[in-house]
């Protein structure tokens, strides 16, 4: 099942003004798997996701999604192809209700057609959101906001769900819940690209992992393999 490559980056570079952040990142995500990018602060993890979703321009290299080049497309067209980006820090619309935030996730015609089914699915995944449906998103707790952010991503009925630091700033028990949810979504058939600082948890979860350092992929392999890799253990797991 996990044969077909859904997303491939070939030698991608990106820069913020004069500062080059990605120095030729190549990676692949196969359909149905969970891929993770781990690395220290400033390694370029968030920038990699932003380059895929075109929030940051791809300076050179190629990004291929489902066989088509997407490196030159604007963000909204990348989203329309089926890539949902759940950004770092949730980035909800704070003055809108939970429900309005979720509904705004269903922009493409296909997503809009199914939006009432999808919203039920999201509420069954996060029952708490159903209770808070009419509450302003800005008044929710961090964990609830993260649920809305993931829910908004799911509303697009994406083929690839990119999650940027979903565990950031959450209580340990909520973090565990979040990882359970990610596993469950993946079992339901969604391909996931996860960026995390919680290296141990995400390597355990991931089928495939990439270690990013200074804008380059320095290690790649199955998640479990990297968990046992000495270099990874020394650098990220403090062992």
């Amino acid at each position: 099942m996990k044969e077909k490559t859904l997303l491939e980056l070939r030698d991608v570079t990106a820069r913020y003004g004069d500062v080059q952040v990605l120095w030729g990142v190549s990676l692949a995500v196969r359909e149905g798997e969970i891929a993770t990018i781990v690395g220290a602060n400033g390694a370029g993890k968030t920038t990699t996701l932003k380059t895929i979703s075109s929030a940051v321009a791809c300076a050179s290299g190629q990004i291929i999604f489902d066989g088509e080049h997407i490196e030159k497309l604007p963000s909204h067209k990348v989203a329309a192809r089926g890539i949902a980006h759940v950004p770092e820090g949730r980035r909800l619309f704070p003055m809108m209700t939970v429900r309005e935030n979720l509904e705004l996730g269903a922009i493409s015609p296909a997503a809009r057609r199914h939006h009432s089914d999808t919203i039920d699915e999201v509420f069954s995944l996060f029952p708490k959101l159903k209770e808070r449906e009419r509450q302003l998103a800005g008044t929710l707790s961090g964990g609830e906001q993260q649920m809305v952010a993931i829910g908004r991503g799911l509303m697009a009925r994406p083929r690839l769900l990119m999650l940027d630091e979903p565990s950031l700033g959450l209580a340990p028990i909520i973090v565990r819940e979040m990882f359970d949810i990610i596993r469950r979504l993946n079992r339901d058939g969604i391909t996931v690209m996860l960026v995390e600082q919680n290296v141990q948890q995400s390597l355990k979860l991931a089928d495939r992992a990439y270690v990013l350092e200074n804008g380059r992929v320095v290690l790649e392999g199955a998640g479990r393999e990297l968990l046992d890799d000495e270099r990874v253990r020394a650098a990220y797991l403090g062992a």
Partner: peptide, 15 residues
Amino acid sequence: MAVREDEETAESIGI
């Protein structure tokens, strides 16, 4: 309103 509240996010969800 989505554009007003967070333009970058509005674009990234497909607007």
